[in-house]
Design a protein around this nucleic acid. Structure first.
Lengths: 165, 165
DNA sequence: CGATATCCGGACCGGATCGGTACTGTATGG
DNA sequence: CCATACAGTACCGATCCGGTCCGGATATCG
C-alpha cells in the first residue's frame, strides 16, 4: 500500500498554511509573519498537539524556523517552490526507505538468505526518491486549487500488463 | 519512511526464485517447473507459511499460476521482464496509495479542513506509480547480482536543498 | 529588574494495523 | 484409496503510528 504517514499529510497542510500567512485575524501584520501552533491548528483543523509535533519535526529538519518566547511561532525557512515532497517526508517520517534492508541497513536481517535482497530495492528507492524530489509543495498547492478541473484523473498510464486490483 | 510491506520484499525474492527454476534438486526437470511452497521457503529462507501467503496473493493477482494436486506447485505466469514492481506491490499490499484521502478515498475524512488535501497527493501518487511501473523484476534481479560493484551507492542526487536527516 | 504568559521540547500511553502461525477443506496424482 | 499440496479461514503477537501530557526556556509587560 506504500503507507505514508498521516503526519506527512498534516505537514503538507501545515506548510501550505504557513506559506499563505495570516490574512484574516486581528493581529495586524506580525513582523515575521510567524504563526503559532494553535493558530495553525485552528485554521487547518488538525489537533494542536499534532501540529506542534509536525512543526517540531519540520523545525528539526530546517524546513521551518522557530521563534521562541511570548510572541513566538513558526515561519517558513524556504518558499514552497524550494521544498520538495521528499524533504517533508524525510523530515516527518525519516529517511526514505521502502524496506529495512536498504541504505542504512544496520544488518538487522535475521536470515542470511533474505539479505541477498540487499541493494535490490536501491533502484526502486532511487526512482521514488527522484520522483518525490521533483515535486515541490508549490506544485501540490497549485494542484489542489482547481478541484473542478480534475473530476477523475486517470493517474499514470500503465504500460505493464495491469492486474486485477 | 514510505513503509513498504515486508511481504512485498518476500514476494520479489519468491518471484525471482521462481524464475530461476529448480536447478539443483534431484527432481529431474519437472514438466512445468512448478515449485512448491516448502521448496521455495527452503531455498529463500522465508518461513513456509509466509511463502504460501505471498504465493496466494501473487496467484490471486495473476502473476503466478497455481497447480493444485499432489504434484502441484507454483509457476510464473509471465517472465520477470514483464512484471513491474508496481504489480507486485499492488498484488501484495493492495493498490498504491500514499494516504487515505486519495483515489478511492471513501470520504473517511473526519475533519472537513483536512479534506482540502483531497487530490493533493495525486501528483505524487502518479509519479511514484510511474516510477514503480518502469522498473521490472528482471532489472532488480540484475541489480542485485554484482554486490561487489556497488559498495556504497550514493543513490539519487538531490538537487533540492538537502536537510539534516 | 522581576513576574508572567506563552510557546517549544521531550516523554508517555493507547490504539490500530501488520506480520506470522495454525487448522481445516478440497482437489489432484500415484 | 491414500498421500500430497494448494486454498481458505481464523487467531495471536508484535511493532509502529497517532494522540496527549508535562517540563524548560524565552520574550514581553509592569
Amino acid at each position: 500500500m506504500l503507507r505514508l504517514s498521516k503526519l506527512t499529510d498534516y505537514a503538507v497542510v501545515v506548510l501550505i498554511r504557513l506559506s499563505e500567512g495570516e490574512r484574516a485575524p486581528a493581529r495586524c501584520c506580525a513582523e515575521d509573519a510567524v504563526q503559532t501552533s494553535p493558530g495553525i491548528a485552528n485554521a487547518t483543523g488538525v489537533p494542536e498537539p499534532t501540529v506542534a509535533k509536525v512543526l517540531k519535526a519540520l523545525a528539526g529538519a530546517g524546513l521551518v524556523v522557530s521563534q521562541r518566547g511570548a510572541r513566538g511561532g513558526y515561519r517558513l525557512a524556504r518558499p514552497l517552490s524550494e521544498i520538495a515532497v521528499a524533504d517533508v517526508i524525510t523530515a516527518v517520517d525519516g529517511p526514505i526507505a521502502l524496506t529495512a534492508c536498504v541504505d542504512g541497513g544496520a544488518g538487522g536481517c535475521d536470515v542470511q538468505s533474505l539479505c541477498a535482497v540487499r541493494g535490490r530495492w536501491d533502484l526502486v528507492n532511487a526512482a521514488i526518491r527522484e520522483a518525490l524530489t521533483g515535486i515541490t509543495l508549490a506544485e501540490m498547492r497549485e494542484a489542489s486549487v482547481p478541484p473542478a478541473f480534475r473530476p477523475m484523473p486517470d493517474l499514470a498510464p500503465r504500460p505493464a500488463p495491469a492486474v486485477a486490483e
